[in-house]
Design a binder for these strands. Structure first.
Lengths: 228, 228
DNA sequence: AAGCATCAGATTGTCGACAATAACTGGAAG
DNA sequence: CTTCCAGTTATTGTCGACAATCTGATGCTT
């Protein structure tokens, strides 16, 4: 899905990684499920060697938790986990904004603006389908992150943290007025970057992420209280 | 070395990971070296399966770079790499300080202070031996990072970024007046945390890290100019 | 002579089987 | 009836071998 995955050669471990990762993020493999290596190997029709390679990378992006000799479980979504994750996200994407304001080329900025216009039109067409919003949002953030030009920051955000972020968002959903507001916030952020105002872009991005967090937090609280 | 490694069971992959990682950090396997799986398997007397598991984790902490079907190389130390890495470090350890000022218990703070006193005494005894300073510094930063109580932040800093940080520091060295100053800076940081002044602790930590960066940067520049 | 295609060698990716460890069931003792 | 212990089963960790791919050298063509 992300550009960093298309290095040169695609291996079986890469393919099954994408499949399982998508299944976890979308909830097809529910949170908290015990991972059985033989079962998954049969299911995806390959040996355990590439499967274990894939599991190692899933652990890397915090989608599963392994304990030696005991196996792996799909991570559980929790309010503390969400807070810790978004605390980091605010800080790192804020930094990404400051660096993007410094390093993004005019062409890259123009491309992001074109992307936003495109999102706006598709949003009009497919109103209510939150999945497209989700994809669009991820794409916007991804562009800004790349714009930071810091390889370690890019790696941490887009390869390690973002799949878990998407898991929270996909499984707990974006609702109501939040969807339309996000576009305006994206616009404001890219404007600040275009003006080379890193401080402002940082601030706006932090608020944008904080708002998103509150939204998911409420869903989690409602879900939690209704169950217990 | 770090507490996060002693989970429950120690496997062969864990052991060889620690061995190879130490060899890379200390420079026994020089930067830029091509990694040969069969050779390392013979050298450490095990099969390629656990070795590959170890290599996957080394890639995770940026000590090696793999390209599919082509093999792995030990990472090269560069001035751009150092800057990108320390840019992140400043931000993340600054955050860690703010969180530590909020979450560390009085007892944890007292332990860090005891640790610093101990470092001071051992420094007097073993003056000049920069390795002990190195270990002590890592230990101090590690305590503060743990004090943040944010599991994702802890994981990124101590499991992913810190071995590369250590590689820069061990191979390019800490020299002269920097060593003794570091202790004072550590003292000031833990004092700010003890006063629950997260802002100040953040600022002091950023300066501390920036100073460390400049030190290594100079070494790299001298080394670079003397060669070409 | 330079550039490209082809082939040999080595390396990585994948497979199935074995060994070591952990989880589960059943039974016995308190 | 509960708790602890042992045997059984299933799972993970490791191994050696095979297949697919890349690297480098050789020879041919232009």
């Amino acid at each position: 899905m992300l550009a960093t995955e298309f290095k040169e050669a695609i291996t079986a471990a890469d393919r099954v990684l994408v499949q399982i990762r998508t299944a976890i993020v979308e909830g097809d493999i529910p949170a908290g499920t015990k991972i059985s290596e033989p079962e998954l190997a049969r299911r995806y029709d390959l040996s355990r060697a590439p499967l274990r390679e894939a599991l190692a990378r899933l652990e890397r992006c915090h989608l599963i938790e392994r304990t030696p000799n005991a196996g792996a479980r799909v991570v559980k979504l929790s309010i503390e986990g969400l807070r810790s994750l978004y605390q980091l996200r605010e800080e790192l994407e804020g930094l990404a904004c400051r660096l993007a304001a410094e390093h993004m080329t005019e062409q890259e900025i123009a491309e992001v603006r074109a992307l936003l216009d495109q999102h706006l039109s598709t949003q009009r067409v497919r109103e209510g389908e939150s999945y497209y919003q989700e994809a669009g949002d991820v794409d916007f953030h991804y562009r800004v992150i790349l714009g930071s030009k810091n390889p370690y920051l890019i790696n941490i955000l887009s390869d390690e943290l973002y799949f878990l972020v998407r898991m929270y968002r996909v499984q707990l959903g974006m609702n109501g007025p939040r969807v339309s507001r996000a576009f305006d916030e994206h616009k404001a952020i890219i404007n600040a970057i275009a003006n080379r105002d890193g401080e402002l872009a940082d601030l706006l991005m932090r608020r944008h992420i904080a708002a998103s967090k509150r939204n998911i937090e409420q869903q989690l609280l409602q879900q939690g209280t209704s169950h217990g």
